[in-house]
Simulated assay, not measured.
Amino acid sequence: MSTEAYVSFLAIGVVLVLIDGQIIYRSGRGYLESSYGDPAAGASMTRLVTVLFHLVTLGLLALLSTIPLGDSDLPGVVGRVGVLLLVLAIVHALTLAVLGRIRGEQVGEAVVNRRISRREAEQRGTAVTTAVPAQEASYPDVSPPLEHRAP
């Protein structure tokens, strides 16, 4: 494989990795920001996952560039790009799984926190109603439950 073919493969590979990384970052940021109470924390987690994606994928690109494929320049570059696309798809799927797991943990933590706050409110003798997730208003206060025979 000539130097021009090697450099063209690396250029194509880096562009593909950067485009996919930006797609993961932008969609992952919106995905995690909606589950975190703090949008900055969701953006930070997405940034960390995206950096990990870039490091792993660029490392695999560097390793893939050293494997001999094809006899001439064009079939070698096309073969490497094909293998790179398959590797990129696998790493993309793994990254989405990581983002999904992070969001699942966040949602689970939010459910546990809501249950704890409800128990504390029940111990105080007041009922708590939670707002709908899309509702921007604060949680409304409600009169005490009938079980306590309060006026």
Results as ranks from 00 to 15, higher is better:
A97C: 10
L146K: 09
L16Q: 14
H54E: 08
A137Q: 13
A127I: 06
Y36R: 09
L94E: 03
G42Y: 02
V14I: 09
P68W: 01
L94W: 05
G59E: 12
D38C: 06
L64I: 10
E4L: 02
I67T: 14
V98K: 08
L94G: 06
V111F: 09
A150K: 10
I90Q: 01
P39A: 14
H92K: 02
R124W: 07
A93G: 07
E105H: 14
P68Q: 07
L96N: 11
I19A: 07
V77P: 05
A150G: 11
L32S: 06
R26P: 02
S8Q: 11
Y31G: 05
P145H: 02
A93F: 14
P145G: 08
I67R: 02
I24Q: 03
L84K: 04
A121C: 05
T95C: 01
S65Y: 02
S44N: 10
L84E: 11
S34F: 06
V112A: 12
P140L: 04
E147Y: 13
L96K: 12
G37E: 15
A43W: 00
L146A: 15
G28E: 04
A40Y: 08
V14M: 04
S8K: 06
G100R: 06
L146R: 10
V87I: 12
G13S: 09
S65D: 15
L94H: 01
D73N: 08
A62V: 15
S34K: 04
R114C: 07
V78F: 12
I23C: 09
T66I: 11
G100Q: 05
E4P: 01
V51M: 11
P75K: 00
P68F: 01
D71C: 12
Y31M: 01
V132K: 00
I24G: 07
D71G: 15
T57I: 01
A127E: 15
T46H: 07
G125Y: 05
R149E: 14
A41I: 13
I102S: 10
E136G: 05
Y31T: 07
A150S: 14
V51Q: 07
D38Y: 04
L99N: 03
T126H: 13
Q106G: 12
D38M: 05
R115S: 09
A5K: 00
V51C: 08
G108P: 09
G79W: 00
G100L: 02
E136A: 03
Y139C: 12
V17W: 00
R29W: 10
L10I: 13
D73I: 01
G37R: 06
S72G: 15
R80K: 12
D73Q: 03
G37Q: 11
I23Q: 10
G59I: 06
L55R: 14
T66C: 04
Q123W: 13
V77E: 07
R124A: 15
S35L: 00
P133E: 02
G28A: 05
P133R: 00
E109T: 05
D141R: 07
S2L: 01
S65P: 14
D141A: 11
S72M: 04
A131R: 09
A110Q: 09
D71L: 12
V128Y: 01
A43M: 04
R47C: 14
L86Q: 04
G13W: 00
L74T: 15
L63P: 11
A11P: 02
N113W: 07
R149S: 15
S72V: 12
A97V: 15
G13P: 03
R47I: 13
